[in-house]
């Protein structure tokens, strides 16, 4: 279970103005400003739930994911994931989560995929039985058989994403964070990835938190949606609630962004 209570996080960034004279001036004296990335964010996600976390760029989505995965320490607020505070007990916490950053790879570029997996087996100290069982199942479901012996650099984006997702699930995490998992994929790969995520959630009761800009992902995968903008939770409800009438979902969300002025 994920429980976030009044999480706040702000950053201090240097102001960098354009222009030659400004550049000279900033050599000696630089101004800073504070940006509130998260402003009292609270929500609860039950075990086995699948939740879409949406919002425009810079709304605070990746800060939230970073806090939940133990990378970032918030300024204020409480956060418990399966009874642990992520940033206080990093190693035990991350054993139980899987993270897919859509635009970065965790696979080794120049060696066959299976070598990356075997390294992950050692990193997570996965027992032989669990590893073999999971690998077999993932290979079957994601159709990886042909890919395992190929180096990551020779795979297409869609193939790589399938391998990427499998890599995040080898250690049977209870929780899966997906950060834009379908970005840049072709239609076939998108469908395959979506179908797999659904199955994983249904059969293993894996809790899934999904950020995306692709509203079709949301439509296909989640019942519940959390909308965040300017660091605050603006709406926490289900798809039907958002969809008033039969418009298409992209327009609905754009409408929402406009309504909240974000």
């Amino acid at each position: 279970m994920i429980k976030m209570e009044a999480i706040c996080k702000s950053y201090r960034v240097a102001k960098r103005n354009a222009g030659f004279r400004e550049a000279c001036r900033s050599l000696l004296n630089r101004k800073y400003e504070t940006i509130k990335a998260l402003d009292h964010v609270s929500f609860t996600i039950e075990d086995g739930e699948m939740v879409g976390y949406i919002g425009p760029n810079g709304a605070g989505k990746s800060s939230t994911i970073k806090i939940l995965s133990g990378i970032l320490t918030p300024d204020e607020g409480k956060c418990l994931v399966n009874g642990r505070t992520p940033w206080k007990d990093r190693i035990n916490h991350v054993r139980e989560i899987g993270v897919v950053f859509g635009q970065r790879t965790q696979l080794w570029w120049d060696v066959p995929i299976i070598d990356s997996y075997q390294l992950l087996k050692d990193i997570y100290s996965i027992s032989k039985e669990t590893y073999n069982h999971n690998l077999e199942e993932l290979t079957e479901l994601l159709n990886l058989k042909e890919l395992l012996k190929t180096p990551a650099r020779q795979l297409s984006l869609g193939q790589r994403m399938r391998c990427e997702i499998a890599a995040s699930l080898l250690h049977s995490p209870k929780l899966l964070f997906l950060d834009e998992p379908t970005i840049g994929l072709d239609a076939v790969s998108k469908l395959a990835v979506r179908e797999f995520i659904l199955k994983q959630n249904r059969e293993h009761k894996t809790t899934v938190l999904l950020t995306t800009h692709d509203m079709q992902d949301i439509e296909a995968l989640t019942r519940r949606i959390i909308l965040i903008g300017k660091g605050r939770v603006l709406m926490d409800g289900n798809l039907e609630q958002i969809r008033q009438g039969g418009e298409n979902i992209d327009e609905t969300v754009a409408e929402l962004y406009r309504a909240y002025n974000i």
């Binding site: 222009g19 030659f20 050599l27 630089r30």
Partner: peptide
């Protein structure tokens, strides 16, 4: 040249 120069300047710590 001007572009390069102000780019260099904007990284004051580097300078």
């Amino acid at each position: 040249f001007r572009l390069r120069f102000s780019m260099g300047l904007s990284y004051r710590a580097a300078a």
